[in-house]
Design a protein around this nucleic acid. Structure first.
Lengths: 216, 216
DNA sequence: GATTTGACAAGACCCTGTGACTTGTAAAGC
DNA sequence: GCTTTACAAGTCACAGGGTCTTGTCAAATC
């Protein structure tokens, strides 16, 4: 589950190549399977437990093929992290797409989904936590990737925000988006209650800020 | 600077003993000086570089006295952290005391102060960051202390909040307080712009949520 | 009485060397 | 296009020994 091929738009948002480029035929299959398997191994045994030999063996391919398809171990980590982030961004994107009627509803849905995904998926949890201060074994590998992530998430949410008609001043939008993202990430690293309840509270705050219902 | 004796109320809030108990005479002086020096050494060289012998030497006391006054190295860490937290909570407390006229102004002041303190004081920065997910050398020592901190901060802010007349429902107050604390801590571990600007944005959000000015 | 001194066992830490394993690259072969 | 084999370079895991540190004495000192 959640091993879908990412939409081009999101990959572009992250500013990366998703795969084999021109040859989108059988070549991508190995690469995708390797990245998926690497993610699986990381989730179960941790990043440091991964060896190129073990990865090759699990996928049923020779070690050399891993080097041909991925490049180096660092590139493997990057590809894995990027894949995880794409899944994350896609979930956020989908939540907004599915709730065009109310901004706070969309925010609630997006927050719920992200919090639940982070809770279930240790790798995503590690990546998102890392983007917010926590340490990890593969963190040194993605410190450069953190800023693009936050920018991508910010841009994504902000773009959706612009499709609703809120009465907010132009220069107040970024702080609002920033608030939502930071709150969600804060609850990823340090959860308080259930994802649903947390998301509800975040959505309520956003609602108040947006002035959707001014008087209760 | 900022080496003031904490008010009893805040120490009680943290649920700790501040010092020698009944004998508040010359005995506390050694203890205070040791804790202050330990904080100083931690700020400069890091916690792991501290030895009881070095600490004793810096204060001009024998190693045995350190053990008499503090107890163990772990207790030294706890005392040091508690002192840092007291300074932090005091700053928040003072900010609210100084701005009884407007809640958002008080929040802005408190946030500004905390962010600036955290930026200047590496030890406080480490402690606050730790309370929000990041790692540190002395972090294993204070994992038990994190929850009390967040509860203390929450209780403090909430108590101040109750002295203003906002029209907020009872069960919406805690999420609001939680939001403010998480946002500030988020900006401690991962700053975006200046403390003043960040605090301004946080205060604005709180203002909107509180409905201080419903229409711009 | 409070503080220091010297002594002590236990354990944490640092350094070093050794061997096994891993990475990354290359060539030959199917 | 993929596999196999081979190889240099580097990392990692472990064990050794020595030093330093912790934490606790009791005796000595001011």
């Amino acid at each position: 589950m959640a091993e879908v091929t990412p939409r081009p738009a999101l990959s572009a948002l992250l500013g990366i190549e998703t795969g084999g480029g021109p040859s989108s035929g059988p070549g991508r299959s190995w690469r995708d399977r390797l990245i998926a398997q690497a993610a699986e191994l990381t989730r179960s045994g941790g990043w440091q437990a991964i060896t190129m030999a073990k990865l090759a063996d699990r996928v049923g391919v020779s070690r050399q093929t891993v080097y041909n398809e991925i490049g180096s171990k660092r590139q493997l980590a990057e590809a894995m992290i990027m894949h995880e982030l794409e899944v994350f961004l896609q979930a956020v994107d989908a939540a907004f797409e599915e709730h065009p009627e109310s901004l706070s509803t969309a925010i609630r849905a997006a927050a719920t989904r992200v919090l639940e995904m982070a809770r279930r998926n240790p790798l995503l949890h590690a990546v998102l936590s890392a983007s917010h201060g926590a340490e990890s074994t593969l963190l040194p590998l993605l410190t450069t990737q953190v800023e693009p992530l936050l920018e991508a998430a910010h841009g994504l949410v902000r773009r959706h925000l612009d499709t609703y008609d809120h009465g907010l001043d132009e220069d107040r939008i970024d702080p609002l988006v920033d608030m939502v993202i930071r709150l969600v990430l804060s609850h990823v690293t340090a959860p308080s209650t259930s994802p649903a309840e947390t998301a509800e509270n975040i959505a309520w705050i956003a609602e108040r800020v947006l002035g959707e219902r001014l008087n209760p």
